[in-house]
Every structure is written in structure tokens, then in C-alpha cells.
Design a protein around this nucleic acid. Structure first.
Lengths: 246, 246
DNA sequence: ATTACTATTTCCCGAGTAA
DNA sequence: TTTACTCGGGAAATAGTAA
């Protein structure tokens, strides 16, 4: 793309008015208003674009009709295709941190049939009975934990028995060290802070990777790009906390 | 959009490398190569974009890591949405010309059950037995006849009886004088030139509009935009003639 | 290697104005 | 009314160079 801002906006102005199939009546003052510039600049831009073969002008009486050429159509299509490719590409989000030991409650909860069955049904794998706790290392990863939290939309329901309440969680599928399937759990009423994620997987990750406390691990989540772009426009900035069930 | 070409390309460079979720390691010489500019300009662009809140830079050792801010994401989403709206908008193509009388063969052909039944089935209306011949007025309209011909993909098959062969045609739905449903026929082996279209309609257009030879009429075709953009890239330019059946 | 300052040049914008 | 020229000021790009 070798067009500057005004040249591009001129082509869009004409394109929007079907300027490739019908001449568009354009005056330099009107174009100048649209481009937020002076009449002189509008005139200059059209002269240049005509010389370079992007538009054709025809004077009919005192009116000027402008058409887009194939060159313009190709230019616009190309720019659009490039933007589309970049913006609609799925987004890889990386969470890096160090393994640490919890109190072992993870294993207890995951092995409860209520949770285990939901995980098998909703996440598609039979979880190893235990969670891997990861202390996020960098500011980037902590930010990304919040971002990913907005897309964790697989609900694991809580339940009650005569003694107590068992909380719910949201989950999202991810990749562990770029090779193993896993899921990140956003647990309701967790006692960990915003710098911690809890990971479950069909395999015993500590065993498979020989992990000890303090070892570095990497969890990668792939988000669909279209939704991600929209996420930039979420008006109310929740800080990644577990959303209340409604 | 208030970014110039370089600023936009910087954002795309970072976006493509997941620069919103992870810092991207950037050096000014590498960026300069990507932007087709000097190292100094690359440096200046980053300084400016950082000051204006589009990017955040962090020095780690001698490496520089760059992240996109929300402001950038919004900017890119906005530009993309605008382009999408303009480029994916359906395209109105106008054909203007003057009515003239043919030899009356149109009425004969359209009233043949073979053709009439196909038109009812494939175009969705029962045609008035006759075609309206339109002599296209302007160079624009003649060009547009060719363009529309590429999208006329409703096949009306020909047939043979013991005496002769009856040719086929391609058709496309259109709007007559911005109000009546009609179709343009691209007739195989027509004896008219490239400046003529033949129009059929469920109503008697000459009667309804009180048309005499020489009166001006307007036929509008709506093309899907996405295909249209691609049409600019058809490598071999056929001149709008009827394609042979394969 | 880098980044980024200063100086010079080049380019672009808009006022004035002619046709 | 138009379009589009010249010209002066200012922004932006590159070259040279320091750190």
C-alpha cells in the first residue's frame, strides 16, 4: 500500500458512492469538507491520483465526474485483505509462571464425581485428580490472565450437600508447554490472588514433565480474533474476577 | 482515524505478532526495514506513538519490548470496521438508455412454453410476453453491461425441435426505474451489439410507464460486494460475450 | 550492536489569487 | 460559482553522529 491518508480516504469516498461503476459528481470544496482539508489540497490530491491512474475525471458542463479505475479497486481489495488477515487471525495468549504446591484440596475436588463428570462432559477429557498451581511471573502474564478470563465460558456448576456448599468455576481449554491439552480454571471464591492460575489436564503433568516447585511452565490459550477485537470495546472493565451466576 | 501510513503499519506489525498480549521484541533497524524507511524514522515513530499512548515500551537488558495498548486495539478495530462496511456493501450498478423497437421476435420467444416455464421457475415471475430493448446511452452504461454480464448466472437453456435450434441465455434480476422487478437477458447469438440490453418483466413495461421509442429508462442491478472486489482481479478480460455452455 | 539527538532537505498544506 | 496555480511556513524524512 503506497497511499497516504488523504488518498485512501478519497478512494473510500468514491467507492462508497459506487464510483467504479458510475461517475461520481465531485467538487473540490465538497471533497475538502469530507477530507477535513482545504479546497487546494483536495484539488491537488485528485490531480495526483489522476496522474497515477487511480481515478478518471470527466468534465460535463461545469460538473466534474470521477470514476475509480481497476488499479484503485485492486489497491482497496489488497488493503482490506491484509487487514482482514491480520485482524481476524486467531490470537495466541501466553501465560508463564512457576509451579507451586497448594494444600492438596485440588485433588479432593477434582475427584468428586460431581465435578469430574462435568469436566468429562464439558471439557472432553477425564481429569487427572489434582490441579497444578502456577504463580504467574510477569506483568504480561497477569494481564493476560484477566484477558483470558473474559473468554473462559465453560461453566462447571457448584452444588450443595447437607454439610456445605461446593463452589463453581469457569474453564477454558489451553495448551500446556505447547504440547499437552489442559484447561485453566477460574474458581469461584478461590483463596489465590490474581497472579495465580489453576490448571487441570488429562495427564499427571508434574510426573510427565518432572516438575518440582519453582519450575517454569507455559500455558497457551488461543482466542478467536473477531471476539478479541470486540473485547477492546467492553465498556465496564471488570478485573477478571469470577462472575456471579445469574 | 488519525494515523499516518507508518503509524498504521507499526500497529499492524505489532498486532500480527500478538503485541497486545505479549511484548514484541523490536529494534529500530528491523522496524525500519519493515516500514521501508530509515532507522531514524522508525525510532521517531515509536517515540511519538509511545507519547500518544498507542504503545508501551520496556527495556529489558539491551532488548526493547513493545506492547499495544487498548487505544491501538480500538483504533485498528475502528478502521477495519469502516473498511468492512464500505467494501462489503452491496454494489448498485446503473444501466441507462433509450427504448427502441425490435422485430417483435422477443414476444414470440418469451411466449414459447419452454422458455416461459424456465423463467417462471428460475427467475420467479411469469414474464410478460415480450422484451424491452434498451439502447445504452453512456460509456458508463456500456461498461456496466459488461460488468453485470459477469454476474448473470441464471441459465435459460435452449432446445432443438425438428426444424431448428432455439438458443439459450443467461439472466440476472434487476430493478426497472427503481421500482419494478425485471431481468436482463444476455442472449446467446443475439444480433444486437454491446450497447443493447434486453429486459423482461412480469408487467408490460411500455404500457405501465407509457414508453415510446426514444424514452429514457434506468435499470439497476445489485451485485454482492465481496464478489465484485474479486472481479477486479479476473486475469483474462473477456469482453462480456456470452460464455459457451460447457 | 543499539537508540535517539541535531541539522539539512524534502515534502506537504493552505492562503492568495487567476482563469 | 468552479479548478488549480504560486508561494511561504511548517511538518516530516534522512544524514550524520553521540552515547
Amino acid at each position: 500500500m503506497n497511499l497516504n491518508k488523504m488518498q485512501l480516504r478519497l478512494l473510500l469516498y468514491l467507492y462508497e458512492r459506487n464510483g467504479f461503476s458510475n461517475g461520481v459528481q465531485v467538487t473540490t470544496p465538497a471533497l475538502a469538507r469530507f477530507l477535513n482539508t482545504s479546497q487546494q489540497s483536495a484539488s491537488r490530491v485528485m490531480i495526483k491520483m489522476e496522474r497515477e491512474g487511480f481515478i478518471e475525471r470527466r468534465m460535463v458542463g461545469r460538473s466534474c465526474y470521477v470514476r475509480l479505475t481497476k488499479k484503485s479497486i485492486n489497491e482497496l481489495s489488497e488493503l482490506y485483505a491484509e487487514l482482514k488477515r491480520i485482524i481476524e487471525k486467531p490470537v495466541e495468549v501466553v501465560l508463564e509462571g512457576r509451579v507451586f504446591s497448594g494444600m492438596g484440596e485440588g485433588a479432593y475436588y477434582i475427584s468428586l464425581p460431581w465435578y469430574r463428570d462435568q469436566i468429562r462432559k464439558k471439557l472432553g477429557f477425564d481429569p487427572y485428580p489434582g490441579t497444578l498451581n502456577v504463580n504467574l511471573l510477569s506483568w504480561d502474564s497477569i494481564q493476560n490472565r484477566t484477558l483470558v478470563g473474559k473468554y473462559a465460558d465453560i461453566w462447571i456448576e457448584g452444588f450443595k450437600d447437607r454439610n456445605r456448599t461446593y463452589g463453581g468455576a469457569r474453564a477454558i481449554l489451553a495448551s500446556f508447554n505447547n504440547s499437552d491439552l489442559c484447561a485453566i480454571l477460574y474458581i469461584e471464591r478461590t483463596h489465590y490472588g490474581e497472579n495465580v492460575i489453576e490448571v487441570i489436564s488429562p495427564v499427571y503433568l508434574r510426573g510427565k514433565y518432572g516438575l518440582s516447585d519453582g519450575d517454569k511452565v507455559k500455558i497457551t490459550v488461543t482466542l478467536p480474533a473477531a471476539n478479541f477485537s470486540a473485547a477492546g470495546q467492553i465498556p465496564h472493565e471488570d478485573k477478571g474476577q469470577i462472575l456471579p451466576k445469574t
